[in-house]
Amino acid sequence: MNRTTSAAASALSLLTALSLTACGGEGEESDKATGEPRPSASRAKQPTPAEKLAELMVAPADVKGFSVQEHSDEFALAKSPKDVTLDKPVCAPLAYAINQLPLGEPQADLTRVLADEAKGLNSAHTYITLTTYASGGAQSTMADVKKAVAACGDGFTAEGSGDGTSTYDSVAPEDVTPAGDETLGFTSTLTFRGAPHTMHTQIVREGEVVGVYFSVNGAAIANARPSDAKLAPAVVKAQNEKLG
């Protein structure tokens, strides 16, 4: 009787083990060499930081009536933040934001330039630069920008390896529509060939992603016509929605 009971118990244990193995192994395969479970090939691959930004960036379908082009750094102040020198180092985040250079120490960055197709090349263009960071990097970046806006009211000069030197006459905070986990806005001014120009910037943080929106009328600057290049509301709204 004891042997029969023991055999029945052993059989029940075996059936239980087989059942648990069949259920518990769902979605995983055992490594033949080690016997350890390994992820199933069907598990979705996580996007890289660069792929994540490409998904978050506005596309033509998101901003009807605007062209969305890749940004060329041919006439940029510099191709990298390390190639920029400033008379006031605390103002560096503003110089980078205004010149489509990544802020802080991102894992990836992506820039696009948008133009209102109905207004043509002589209108203001909106530049969007998205950057993604390791944990805590986006908050630190926003803190540096806030510090710079507070410290650089009387302007600053940025010298780059590319298109010479840019002197900004003033910087001032600007009220913007709330967005993301935190946001801030500021205006910057410069004078070129005697003509004054005002540019607008908004920076939005959503999680570990930062979006910089910057608007400038390059044609007006080149032709010495005064300008006040406001951000396109439709572009800002569309990009904020993409960021979530």
Rank of each mutant, 00 (worst) to 15 (best):
M1S: 12
M1K: 05
R3N: 06
T4K: 10
T5Y: 09
S6D: 11
A9N: 08
L18T: 15
C23D: 10
E26D: 14
E26P: 00
G27P: 03
S30E: 09
S30G: 01
R38H: 01
P39S: 08
A41L: 10
Q46T: 13
L53C: 01
M57F: 07
M57A: 13
V58K: 06
D62V: 08
D62H: 07
D62G: 01
V63N: 03
K64F: 05
E70K: 13
S72G: 11
K79N: 09
V84Q: 02
L86N: 05
D87Y: 00
D87E: 06
K88S: 09
C91I: 02
L101A: 11
E105K: 15
A108G: 03
T111M: 00
L114S: 02
L114V: 08
I128P: 02
L130H: 05
G136R: 00
G136S: 02
G137K: 02
G137H: 03
G137M: 04
A138W: 12
A143R: 12
V149R: 07
A151M: 06
C152G: 08
G155S: 13
T157K: 13
G160P: 02
D163G: 06
S166T: 10
Y168D: 02
S170A: 15
P173Q: 04
P173C: 08
D175V: 12
V176Y: 01
G180Y: 09
G180R: 06
F186P: 01
F186H: 06
L190S: 12
L190W: 06
T191P: 08
T191G: 07
R193C: 03
P196L: 09
T198H: 05
T201A: 13
V204F: 09
V204T: 14
S215P: 02
A220F: 09
A220M: 11
I221K: 01
A222N: 13
N223K: 15
A229L: 09
L231Q: 08
A232D: 15
V236K: 05
K237C: 00
A238K: 02
